[in-house]
Simulated assay, not measured.
Amino acid sequence: MTEFETHPPAYTETVPATGRRPFVFAVPHAGRHYPRDLLSASVLDTKTLRSSEDAYVDRLFDSVPDTGAVLIAATHARAYLDLNRDPRELDPRLIHGLKGRDDLMDSARVRAGLGLIPAVVGPDMPIYKGKLDIEDVLSRHDRLYMPYHKRLGNLLNACIAQWGRAYLIDCHSMPSTLEQNRTKPLGRKTIEADIVLGDCWGTSCDRAFTALAESLLTREGFRVRRNIPYAGGFVTEHYGRPAANIHALQIEINRGIYMDETTLEPKDCFWDIAARLSRFAAALMAAQDEGATQPHTKEYGRRLAAE
Rank of each mutant, 00 (worst) to 15 (best):
N254K: 15
D260R: 09
N181E: 11
S52C: 14
E192M: 12
Q288S: 02
Y34A: 08
A74F: 01
K184W: 12
G113D: 12
I117E: 04
E290I: 13
L38W: 02
A275R: 13
F234S: 07
D124Y: 10
G122V: 12
T190F: 14
L212V: 00
V70Y: 05
L304V: 08
T67R: 13
R223Y: 12
N227C: 04
F4L: 03
A231W: 06
Y258E: 06
F4D: 00
D272H: 14
A73V: 06
R226H: 00
G97T: 00
I117M: 05
G68R: 05
R303N: 06
L212N: 02
L249W: 00
T262R: 11
E89N: 10
Y258S: 15
F209P: 00
A41Q: 07
L186Y: 13
T263Q: 10
A30T: 05
V196Y: 03
M259S: 13
T75C: 03
L138P: 01
Y80E: 04
H7R: 14
D86I: 11
A244G: 03
V43H: 10
G164D: 00
D37P: 07
D199C: 02
A55T: 12
E307I: 09
D194K: 06
G291F: 08
G100D: 00
C171F: 02
S42I: 12
H172R: 07
R151I: 09
